[in-house]
């Protein structure tokens, strides 16, 4: 099969960018989408052109490095997978595929399809942790945790920090990302100790980074490679409200 790629190219943040169209060589439907970009890049390099810059690393859907908005949807057509787990058999021979970078004020563009997601690190630094020093922990089994709570916490903790939720949201909101971390820790007794401080600090960091608010459209959940539920956003709203009522601490 062959496809036509319409790819956003931009040398760096301060230069204007635009779409370039590339006809791919013959492809194998079992290739991953990123392997297809590898093939295109090999051709470009051989022709003496600069290859398309795109983020990727583990190529098995867990590191959260890959991004891309493929035909208007972050991480491509399928639910519950990242771009690196998208295979060409999801497209048809002759398709035109539009590839854009994640767009958000809080994710400034670096080059071509690569954006900076540092804002996520800043949010976690503000409160996405349990304040425990190495070596000070009690025995792991000293604190029984109901299995449903642990499972639920794991559902939230699966977030890979890719930013697709932001890319998909019409408001470029990071609520699902923040909600996942706040919920993961709020569901566990270890995390409950500083839950108010965490919710307040992480929300403040999120707003300072320039993300939009939540309009409950559900796009984030629909594109999340780990299918993290919108329900966690409700939990974040609850946690934050609780923090407001308890006052600063």
């Amino acid at each position: 099969m062959r496809v036509r790629l319409k790819v956003w190219r931009q040398k760096h943040a301060h230069r204007p960018g635009g779409f370039h169209t590339y006809e791919t060589p013959e492809l194998n439907p079992n290739m991953s989408f990123l392997e297809m970009l590898d093939v295109v890049n090999e051709e470009l390099t051989q022709r003496g052109e600069e290859p398309i810059a795109f983020d990727h690393d583990c190529r098995e859907g867990i590191c959260g490095t890959c991004s891309l908005v493929i035909n208007g949807k972050p991480h491509g057509p399928h639910r519950g997978v990242a771009t690196c787990q998208t295979y060409l058999r999801s497209f048809r021979d002759g398709d035109e595929i539009v590839v854009e970078p994640f767009r958000a004020k809080a994710f400034p563009l670096i080059k071509d399809l690569i954006v900076s997601r540092k804002a996520f690190d800043h949010i976690i630094q503000a409160g996405g942790f349990v304040s425990v020093r190495t070596g000070s922990a009690p025995d792991a089994n000293a604190l029984p945790i109901p299995k449903p709570d642990a499972d639920r916490a794991m559902d939230a903790a699966q977030c890979i920090g890719c930013g697709a939720c932001v890319a998909a949201c019409k408001n470029a909101s990071a609520m699902l990302f923040v909600a996942a971390k706040v919920s993961h820790l709020a569901l566990l007794p270890q995390g409950k100790v500083e839950r108010e401080r965490r919710a307040r600090a992480m929300v403040q960091a999120m707003e300072a980074a320039g993300f939009g608010g939540c309009s409950v459209t559900g796009s984030c959940e629909a594109v999340c490679p780990k299918e993290i539920s919108l329900e966690f956003i409700a939990r974040l709203n609850r946690e934050y409200g609780r923090a407001l009522l308890k006052g600063p601490n």
């Binding site: 767009r103 998909a168 408001n171």
Partner: peptide, 22 residues
């Protein structure tokens, strides 16, 4: 605020999973 959060729009946007009402 929400508008300001995305200064550059997508050429193609599907807003997967969201309803028209929302």
């Amino acid at each position: 605020e929400n508008r300001a959060a995305r200064p550059v729009a997508y050429v193609q946007a599907r807003y997967e999973g969201s309803s028209l009402a929302s």
